[in-house]
């Protein structure tokens, strides 16, 4: 039964000109073209987008939940990467 099931596609929509495409959900379709057609009906019934990307779910490589620590914790101690780390006297003016 599931051998006949259409593959799953992840859908990305650009909401407005100038914005990134954002992941909005997924759907089943036999091929990429039908995935775009279906995405238009399922995810943009109220003008939610100006452009659609579809990617086969199996083509996405995701980081493992257990990798959250090693991947993202090191940034925690590097607060100097944010501009507010540095005190600039008011006399200097806007910077």
């Amino acid at each position: 039964m599931s051998k006949k099931e259409w593959p799953l596609w992840e859908i990305f929509i650009r909401g407005q000109h100038g914005l990134n495409h954002r992941h909005v959900g997924s759907l089943h379709a036999p091929d990429a073209e039908m995935a775009v057609n279906n995405a238009r009906d399922v995810y943009t019934r109220r003008k939610e987008g100006v452009s659609i990307w579809v990617v086969k779910s199996t083509d996405i490589t995701a980081s493992a939940p257990s990798a959250k620590g090693p991947l993202f914790d090191p940034a925690e101690s590097k607060v100097y990467r944010h501009p507010t780390f540095f005190d600039i006297p008011d006399d200097v003016g806007h910077m």
Binding site: M1, S2, G25, S26, L27, V42, R45
Partner: peptide, 23 residues
């Protein structure tokens, strides 16, 4: 048509838990 869409959003959500659409 919205109801169909709502069904599809929810089936997709259920599928993330390891059940197939056909099932």
């Amino acid at each position: 048509q919205d109801e169909a869409g709502h069904g599809l959003y929810l089936y997709s959500a259920a599928e993330t838990l390891g059940v197939s659409r056909d099932e």
